[in-house]
Design a protein around this nucleic acid. Sequence first.
DNA 1: CATGAATGAGAGTTCATTCAT
DNA 2: AATGAATGAACTCTCATTCAT
Lengths: 210, 210, 210, 210
Amino acid sequence: MAKVTRDAEATKAKIIQNAMLLFAKNGYEATTADEIAKACSVNKAMIFYYYKNKAGLYSAVMSYALGAIHDEIITTDKCCISPLADLEAFIKTYAAYCDKNPYLSALILRELSDSGAHLPEMMFASLRKLFALFSEILHEGEKQGLFHDIEPMIIYFMIVGTVNLLITTKPLRENAAKMENPLNTCSDCDIDEISEYIFKKVKLMLEVKE
Amino acid sequence: MAKVTRDAEATKAKIIQNAMLLFAKNGYEATTADEIAKACSVNKAMIFYYYKNKAGLYSAVMSYALGAIHDEIITTDKCCISPLADLEAFIKTYAAYCDKNPYLSALILRELSDSGAHLPEMMFASLRKLFALFSEILHEGEKQGLFHDIEPMIIYFMIVGTVNLLITTKPLRENAAKMENPLNTCSDCDIDEISEYIFKKVKLMLEVKE
Amino acid sequence: MAKVTRDAEATKAKIIQNAMLLFAKNGYEATTADEIAKACSVNKAMIFYYYKNKAGLYSAVMSYALGAIHDEIITTDKCCISPLADLEAFIKTYAAYCDKNPYLSALILRELSDSGAHLPEMMFASLRKLFALFSEILHEGEKQGLFHDIEPMIIYFMIVGTVNLLITTKPLRENAAKMENPLNTCSDCDIDEISEYIFKKVKLMLEVKE
Amino acid sequence: MAKVTRDAEATKAKIIQNAMLLFAKNGYEATTADEIAKACSVNKAMIFYYYKNKAGLYSAVMSYALGAIHDEIITTDKCCISPLADLEAFIKTYAAYCDKNPYLSALILRELSDSGAHLPEMMFASLRKLFALFSEILHEGEKQGLFHDIEPMIIYFMIVGTVNLLITTKPLRENAAKMENPLNTCSDCDIDEISEYIFKKVKLMLEVKE
DNA sequence: CATGAATGAGAGTTCATTCAT
DNA sequence: AATGAATGAACTCTCATTCAT
């Protein structure tokens, strides 16, 4: 069984990583195979060798990225302590993860504003599982009489949409802060403040007041 | 074939309209000049005749679209009745306008997830003016002791981000509803329900409870 | 007969002048109708109205330019005084004229290096008449026993080719003079020195030494 | 169709050769990438693959062509025998080389009538080296008291300009010979006669008569 | 006579993808 | 597994030319 050459795996991983970065930065169409190949010092043909075509690579990138976030949330969530604690964990884990992987937010937003033109089943399923998890938390809260008047899809977007937008617009907001007559664009809010703030507000929205 | 109009304004308008639609549907890079030209039965060269290049056209489209929404909100807002009424008007006008012009949400989201890579001062200024208006409403409410703990940028995204996402993901959510084990994706919520719901929730987030 | 509007003539003349300049500077292909129109503040369609097409304009430009030089030489030449005086007059008039109309040299050289791809009969005839005149001078000198061993075509190019090249390369030679280790490129020779020098040398080439 | 070679050097060479020919025949602007590609049975994209863009190809063509002539003259010149012999060698080698490579004269003339608008240091340097060589011969002749009243730039153009013009106008002169009332345009002078004649005349121009 | 709108045919360039080695 | 050469189908943009007014 001798020396296993894991070059193949290494190459595939390099491609995924660099492609993810570039897709996030420039979008699907504006990212070229040449560019990706150069970024990872890999021959362009390898991209097609491993991922068949550009769409295949994109799909691999997305399912990698989304798979990761789903796992992170599942494992981090101290599931089932209480709906409120679960909610808090969801928000904070999601925010922290996106903040650490800043390409992710751009990828997700872009995909959603495309109505998933590029995205294949698998990735759609990932997005769906995440929402299912969230939905479950809200329904459990409602069942326990803690939350009321929930509309999971809307609440979900109020959370993840906002987090994603705050992350992708960070440079934009920082520039805006440097202009004259600056508005307060929360340009130096850090991610913990943001997720804390969002959690607090969502709690107000949902909790039954006695 | 393709009757010749020889009316500059009409031609320019046709180009803008069709380009807007296509840019919204497919994004900047994936939209081709040929496609736009065919969509408006105009010679491709006219695009360059009037807008110099693709970026120029995009820029014209964006400033048209954003200019329109800003005007709509300014004129519709029954400004200054009360912060709460203003807030309600803002949310509902914004949502209704985006719903009637469905390309708009996609354009805005895409631009935001790009950090405005594609474009220019004018359009940035438009986005900014809209936020400034919103920000002013919240501050006024705070001054009057009605609202508390406001972070305008975050609240703003919770509203417009959510509206935009719900609009762009409508087809996606409808498809999801047809699957087995469907989740409730609010797939047949209409825009008035949505904006009413958002308003109600935002009110809960902001209002000082006595 | 009232006020005669000579606008037509004025417009045509403006077009010729500006076209000549641009053709000389950039060559036939690299000069566009738009450019010419803008340069003379005339509507682009007028170019085609008056000259039918680009080739027609070029042809008009060339026959204007070459017609002028031919006339200039004919009328200036104190014809038939003596072959040597005629030769001197030819060289100096040609050089002075090209120097005053700097576009001309470029036009001629370009046309010659194209083997007259663009040039129509008329202009070919003009070039030919000029050469015929020159040829006649040499033959007359030979008949009178003043010149020997003449090969008119070669001598002709030694004169007009050299003058034209010195004129068109002036900027090039001036730049070369500013480099380190400059060569003497005759970069500040004026046209009178040049034509005097050429005449002197041609005389040495042709005159029968007693 | 068009057998695939997959030999980079061969492909690059084919492109250069055919491009040289076409640039010489039609000029820079009038030569299209399609035309070049077809001429060498190579995919059009290869031009850009190897030479980045049209200007890059042109530049490569010129430096190839000029490099070659310079080398030819350097190696052929039985340098330093005597200024007169060197001069003769220069003229004859130059003429013979241009005659064998007929595209070269057109390229050079065109470039000179453009004042080198199209191109770059490297090629400019090549032209310059050739002139430097020539200049050196004349100065050496002057130092040895053999030549007098030299103006190298002018003499240089009298030689190379004339040779180039005679070569490029060959078809033109042949046509002229077929007309009625033909002039003697040296239309069947061969290159050896021409260079011999030029050498003889230049000698008369330069030599100190005892 | 003059204008600006409109057109169609390309030109240069890019890019995903495949092939031969 | 990996490379660099090769391809073909676009794509953006330009330009001579014509048409309607």
